[in-house]
C-alpha cells in the first residue's frame, strides 16, 4: 500500500518564534486513516519523534540545507502501536479547551514539578486543561498521569530547553485513583 503524505511546514512559525506544537498535533489528529505527515522544521524534532512514535507513527529523517529537516511520519499498521497508545492516555482527539491553569515549574528541584502538577490536577474539574513548563521531559510523571486517567501531550519547545506539557483532567480520575 502506498502511503499518502500531508505536508506541514512549521519553519515559518519557528522562525517567527512561535510554538508549532499544537499546529502539529492538530494536523496529526485530522489525518485520514492510513495517511502520513511530511513535516519541515528548522531543527531535528527529536521529542516529536517519541511523541508521534507513541501514537503509532514511524519516522524517516532527512537533513536539508542549513540544518533544516524533513521528517516523514508514516502510520504503522501494527497492533503493538495501538496497544501502547491505549496504555498511555495521550490521544489528541477533539478540541482541547484553553488551559485553565498554567504552571512554570522550570526552576524547581526534581521531583517538585511532578508534585505540583499532580496536586494542581486534584483540584481541577473534569475536562479542564493544565499547562506546565518544565526544564526536562517528565518521564516519571507520564505513567502516573495515565494511571490516574488523565490525557496529556507534551514536547520540547523550539529552544530545546523548555518542555511544555498539557494535561486534560480525565473522567476516570476517581475510578483510576
Amino acid at each position: 500500500m502506498t502511503v499518502k503524505y500531508v505536508d506541514l511546514d512549521v519553519r515559518p512559525a519557528l522562525r517567527a518564534g512561535e510554538e508549532p506544537f499544537e499546529q502539529i498535533t492538530a494536523a496529526v489528529a485530522t489525518l485520514p486513516a492510513g495517511q502520513g505527515l511530511r513535516l519541515f522544521a528548522t531543527f531535528k524534532p527529536v521529542p516529536l519523534l517519541h511523541v508521534l512514535g507513541s501514537k503509532g507513527f514511524s519516522h524517516e529523517l532527512k537533513e536539508l540545507e542549513d540544518g533544516e529537516w524533513e521528517v516523514l511520519f508514516t502510520p504503522e499498521a501494527t497492533t503493538e502501536a495501538a496497544t501502547e497508545a491505549d496504555v498511555v492516555a495521550t490521544p489528541a482527539e477533539g478540541v482541547w479547551p484553553d488551559s485553565a491553569l498554567t504552571l512554570d515549574n522550570r526552576d524547581l528541584d526534581p521531583p517538585e514539578p511532578m508534585v505540583r502538577i499532580l496536586a494542581a490536577l486534584e483540584k481541577m474539574h473534569e475536562g479542564e486543561v493544565l499547562s506546565a513548563l518544565l526544564c526536562r521531559e517528565p518521564v516519571f510523571l507520564m505513567p502516573e498521569l495515565a494511571k490516574r486517567g488523565h490525557q496529556w501531550q507534551g514536547a520540547f519547545e523550539g529552544d530545546g530547553a523548555t518542555y511544555r506539557i498539557l494535561v486534560r483532567v480525565g473522567s476516570s480520575r476517581e475510578a483510576a485513583a
Binding site: V87, F140, P143, A146
Partner: peptide
C-alpha cells in the same frame, strides 16, 4: 508507552 516506571 512513553515515560519510565520503577525498575522492579
Amino acid at each position: 508507552m512513553v515515560g519510565a516506571s520503577l525498575s522492579r
